[in-house]
């Protein structure tokens, strides 16, 4: 019974990031390569790429804690390190600007828009995959297409719509428009998850007299929790990252979200602005990076799931 040939899984998502490292780190055909060869063909290019990918963050962090005079004097001080870090920029950011407000706005908008989208997408995905109403196939295709409509061609008409509804310069404008980016993505992702849940479970529940709503709440959702987490995290990140709607629909300084506020409010002609600018960029990225650190696997499965389905 147990020695059946392992069926090939479509994608082993967990394995992407959590392959247990072996003790000798050799597997399959890797013994065919000698160590010097691996150094040149694998470790060298890999370390160059990783260095380039991570250097801007190092630079961001370093600039955020460097004293001003070191920032603009590259000759007397080595620019790559500082021996007397300062928290002046971060202090200025947190106590002399609207930064806490902006962080709060971003968080508020992202959480509300994400929850709205997840609720809508759960219902839609369940209906498309399991209710299979007339035309469900077509609706699924249309939702995929709407995933491909970028915000850059929608922001002008949306600005007029937002203005007509009297939502201009309020967080509601973003909470209601962000789902258009999030719903197609998360519906598509959740459809993939719902398809993996055995149909028999639902049939049993139907025979026992459960309604569709009960099936969704009590059977399907508990089984789809990994998918829900993936969708939630990815949507949250997309919201946090969104720029053009927030730039267009918000006007007053205290209502802005972090990305827009940093670009618009911190960029003045001051030669000493770099410290606080980088501190702001760092503080705006940290929440996402921390979230990411906890949910790496879910994040990756969301990203690949959206492409693969």
């Amino acid at each position: 019974m147990t020695d059946l040939p392992a069926t090939q899984k479509p994608v082993d998502l967990k394995a992407i990031l959590s392959t247990p490292s072996r003790i000798d780190n050799s597997e399959g055909m890797s013994y065919l390569q000698s160590l010097p060869r691996r150094l040149v063909t694998l470790y060298l290019p890999l370390s160059i790429i990783v260095f380039v990918l991570l250097f801007p963050f190092y630079w961001m962090g370093l600039t955020a804690i460097k004293p001003d005079e070191q920032l603009i004097d590259l000759e007397t001080f080595s620019p790559f390190w500082t021996w007397n870090p300062t928290f002046k920029h971060i202090h200025k950011l947190l106590f002399e600007s609207y930064y806490p407000w902006w962080l709060w706005n971003t968080m508020y908008v992202a959480v509300c828009a994400t929850i709205l989208s997840i609720v809508a997408s759960v219902l839609a995905a369940y209906a498309i995959v399991r209710l299979r109403y007339k035309g469900a196939h077509w609706v699924g295709g249309l939702i995929f297409l709407s995933y491909l409509v970028p915000p850059s061609i929608l922001f002008i008409p949306l600005a007029t719509v937002v203005f007509q509804y009297g939502l201009f310069d309020s967080p509601m404008a973003l909470i209601l428009t962000y789902p258009t980016i999030l719903i197609p993505f998360s519906t598509w992702l959740l459809m993939g998850y719902f398809k993996t849940i055995p149909f028999e479970l639902e049939e049993c529940a139907l025979i026992d007299g459960a309604s569709r709503w009960q099936i969704l709440i009590k059977i399907v959702l508990p089984l789809a929790i990994p998918g829900l987490i993936s969708a939630f995290i990815f949507c949250f990140t997309l919201c946090w990252n969104e720029f053009i709607y927030a730039l267009t629909f918000l006007q007053s300084t205290s209502n802005k979200t972090v990305p827009v506020a940093i670009v618009n409010e911190f960029v003045d002609g001051d030669v000493y602005r770099w410290g606080s600018l980088m501190a702001g960029a760092l503080a705006g990225s940290l929440p996402l990076v921390i979230l990411y650190a906890f949910f790496v696997e879910h994040y990756v499965s969301a990203m690949t799931g959206a492409v693969k389905e």
Binding site: V260, A281, S285, V289
Partner: peptide, 18 residues
Amino acid sequence: RALVLIPFIVPTVLSALA
């Protein structure tokens, strides 16, 4: 693998500022 993905997580605007 986890490190490599970080540039994609960080909001574009913020890394653009860097």
